[in-house]
Design a protein around this nucleic acid. Sequence first.
DNA 1: ATAGCGATGAGCT
DNA 2: GCTCATCGCTATA
Length: 198
Amino acid sequence: MSLTLSQSYFQHRDVVYLAKDLIGKKITTCIDGKTTSGIITETEAYAGCGDKACHAHLGRFTERTKVMYEPGGIAYVYLCYGIHHLFNIVTNTRGNADAVLIRAVEPLEGFDTMRKRRGKEKLDKALTSGPGNFSKAFGISKTHNEMSVVSKELNIEHISYKPKNLVETKRIGIDYAEEDVDLPWRFYDNSSKFISIK
DNA sequence: ATAGCGATGAGCT
DNA sequence: GCTCATCGCTATA
């Protein structure tokens, strides 16, 4: 049994709760006619204006970040290091600019499509672990910025899967975030090998 | 107009 | 563990 998560699910006010709750959910993309899916194994929460690691810190509102202020349930995709497309789900209600970064998934369907998009022969953990790798394997790019995550192309379902060893720890790559660097807002299922780094 | 740099990943040692 | 590719975003002027 599975249930597609609704727009209102993503409008929950606590982005940290959502980041944790999304571990073990199933994410599916149907892009360029190719279906790929997997179990979410790693996420991070970014908590809007008050979070020094968040792109919307202090209400920063630019061409890039404006999508974060929309009501929850749409994608925020941006280019990192000029190379990697990083996929986030905007959460909370309008004006709050919270988001959950998807950092890794464990593949379920579309192995051949993922391998082809990644240019990899082997099915090792690097196929879909790490935010840039996940996005590439699932066919997500900046053209999907602002797309609904309650759609045919992109959706998330509750499935009968329970994370067996849920770890809470500090976020990756945000050394500039001063007193917010150590917030335990990264979550991963340590029973999966599809994790970016431990 | 432009300098500085980043929510990374791959390859090599 | 270390280097570096690569370019859009941001702030500053």
